[in-house]
């Protein structure tokens, strides 16, 4: 402040006649914020550890068995990716998504940055949109991390060859890798509904840890409900229903039914919980 006499330079600040309301800069800023946090990298590292642990365990013990695909790893390294994502879907992926989505506005509130963003004025709906976009990007990054690290460690530790699909036909390695990446996309889409739920819970509180925990608990509850045959009537509407449907992408020809149904269901959750989040956040008093 010793330079307090320096006049305010007037460069920047677009003229008031034509103020672009673009969202691009804010979106980039949000993505940068996500990937400049050590926490994000810790979450991704934990996810990357899953295929590594699986592959090393199989390699050291030399025996298969256990969850689906694990038995095939020793014969074909590409199966490490499939096995790892199967292990990660029920708990580890929802856990990391819960952290990122639950933190979205509650985290800003607890840091005290929310009020400054709103004063800029970022626009409340605009902020929710970029927060959801960042959570969606994280879903994709997380699923790809598990799959890509799985394929790489499989290539490093095991022989790799043509993959026999669930329908019995054999496809070349490159085709199998393409299907593996498609599975990662399927899993990322599967997690969008949970991201929207996390975003909504995040708008309810200024305590990020609470929002994270509630989001993860909901994902587990939904899976438990999905396992109770007495509740089969509600199963089609649970956001976890199609979480394991990616096996259909390992058929020849690819069966897109579960992909489509899953995408539609997740879209429904995004619309419902996105609207709830907006309804709550737009009218809310920011007292953090």
């Amino acid at each position: 402040m010793s330079n307090a006499e320096v006049p305010a330079a007037d460069h920047g600040r677009a003229s008031s006649t034509a103020r672009p309301r673009g969202i691009g800069a804010l979106l980039l800023s949000e993505f940068a914020l996500l990937f400049r946090r050590r926490r994000t990298w810790a979450l991704l590292s934990a996810l990357a550890a899953i295929p590594v642990l699986l592959a090393v365990a199989v390699r050291l013990s030399g025996e298969g068995g256990g969850p689906s695909f694990v038995g095939e790893i020793a014969g074909n390294g590409l199966f490490t990716g499939f096995a790892a994502i199967t292990v990660a879907v029920p708990l580890f992926l929802p856990l990391t998504i819960g952290v990122v989505a639950g933190d979205s506005t509650a985290g800003e509130a607890s840091l005290g940055t929310l009020r400054y963003l709103l004063i800029t004025p970022v626009g409340r709906i605009r902020l929710l949109l970029v927060k959801f976009a960042a959570a969606a990007l994280f879903c994709l990054t997380a699923a790809l991390t598990v799959m890509v690290v799985g394929i790489l460690i499989g290539l490093a530790l095991f022989p790799v060859g043509p993959v026999t699909l669930l329908s019995g036909t054999q496809v070349p390695v490159i085709d199998a890798i393409a299907r593996a990446l498609l599975i990662a996309v399927y899993v990322a889409v599967s997690l969008l509904g949970l991201s929207a739920i996390g975003l909504f819970i995040s708008t309810l509180t200024d305590v990020p840890v609470g929002a994270m925990a509630a989001t993860v608990v909901l994902s587990i509850t939904s899976q438990i409900l999905g396992s109770l045959s007495q509740l089969s009537a509600i199963h089609p509407y649970l956001f976890t229903t199609h979480w394991f449907g990616f096996g259909d992408l390992l058929r020849d020809p690819i069966s897109w039914t579960s992909f489509g149904e899953n995408a539609l269901l997740q879209f429904g959750y995004v619309v419902v919980f996105g609207s709830l989040a907006m309804g709550r956040f737009v009218t809310r008093d920011i007292l953090s």
Binding site: A9, G12, R19, P20, L26, S29
Partner: peptide, 20 residues
């Protein structure tokens, strides 16, 4: 980050505003 959050600010001149 706060400058980018404000609608209508030019990213070309952001660095200058922050430094000022």
């Amino acid at each position: 980050r706060f400058d980018a959050a404000e609608p209508g600010t030019s990213s070309r001149t952001r660095e200058g505003r922050v430094a000022d």
